[in-house]
Amino acid sequence: MTAGPWRAPRNATTCPGKTAAKWARRYQDEGIGGMYDRSSRPRHQPKKTPPHVVRTIVRTRLRQRLGPIEIGAKLDLPASTVHAVLTRCHLNRLTHIDRATGEQPRRYEHARPGDLIHVDVKKLGRVPDGGGHRYVGRVQGGKNRIATVNAGHATRGTSSNPRLGTCYLHTVIDDHSRVAYVEAHADEKKETAATVLRNAVAWFAARGVTVQRVLSDNGPA
């Protein structure tokens, strides 16, 4: 924004007198810098919930996982006040709290995309074309299984028990942005995992992201 001489707005004649005088006084005292919008938050809030009450509300929420109504009844406070405090402290949803310990989850996130990527493999059982027995029943599910194998979409076993096999989803997730790169394969061998990693690094590089570190579990691949 280029600073220049201040001009009154075209509708200045319709502005309330107090508002026009306020802006004129700001310009006289501070120049162009006084023309920017300012926060309307009051400087003093005498009715704001005291810090020790806020700590009690938060402590009760973390230890007992109660809602605003229960906490309000327990502490003799309005439920609306309790809800406002929980919202301000990012505790208004139980998903923000670890259910086992009652503590706020400790999360980490690298500063830039590519600083760290996570690699892992998710195994999923293949479903025959047209649906499996859990969805269409055993008779139709068996027909769908045989048809899928005959079509070459799965591994052939015995005629009575054709094998559909397992789908291995090789996933590569960027720690900062949570953007995921996924490839579906028929195995999780080390050669396959290495190929997926090279493809993922090239995919991120094509989008301006340089991979610096890789994190994986102690899987066989």
Rank of each mutant, 00 (worst) to 15 (best):
I57S: 08
V196N: 00
R207V: 06
M1I: 09
A84C: 11
C89Y: 15
R126G: 03
R41F: 02
A79V: 12
M35N: 03
Y168K: 00
A100H: 09
V58L: 14
R65V: 06
D175R: 01
T56K: 11
W203R: 11
V58A: 13
R207C: 06
P50W: 08
G208N: 04
L91D: 14
H170L: 11
I69Q: 14
K190L: 02
A200S: 11
G67V: 10
A205I: 08
Y27R: 03
E30S: 05
G157A: 13
A12T: 03
D187C: 01
N92D: 15
I32A: 05
P46H: 00
V182G: 04
T95Q: 05
V121S: 02
G132F: 07
G102S: 13
A111Q: 15
A147K: 14
K143C: 12
A180R: 02
S80Q: 10
S160H: 10
T171M: 05
G131S: 07
S160I: 07
R26V: 05
V121M: 02
A84W: 09
T49Q: 00
C15P: 00
R41H: 05
R112G: 04
P78Q: 14
A184Q: 08
R7F: 01
R145I: 15
K190T: 00
R61K: 15
F204E: 09
V182F: 04
D98G: 02
T95R: 06
E109F: 04
T87D: 14
E109S: 03
V119C: 07
Y36T: 04
W203P: 04
T195R: 15
P162Y: 14
K74I: 07
Q45M: 01
A205E: 14
H90T: 05
G137M: 11
S40M: 10
A147P: 03
T171H: 05
S177A: 08
V121G: 04
A186E: 12
G219R: 15
V58W: 11
T171W: 06
D187E: 08
A24K: 01
C89A: 15
T166R: 14
G132M: 01
I146K: 02
G72Y: 07
R198Y: 13
V82E: 10
S216K: 01
R41L: 09
G132E: 04
P9C: 03
T158W: 15
V53G: 05
L75G: 08
R156D: 11
I32R: 01
V214L: 10
D76L: 10
K122H: 13
K143G: 03
R207I: 13
E191A: 13
L124E: 07
Y168F: 13
A154Q: 02
T148N: 06
G219V: 09
V85I: 09
I117D: 03
V127F: 02
R41I: 02
S216G: 07
E70Q: 10
K47H: 06
G137C: 15
H52F: 04
A206M: 14
Q140I: 07
E109P: 03
P78T: 05
L91C: 13
L169A: 12
K22C: 04
Q64M: 11
I146N: 00
S40T: 08
A184V: 13
G137H: 15
S177N: 05
G102L: 12
R7N: 06
P16N: 00
L66V: 09
D115C: 12
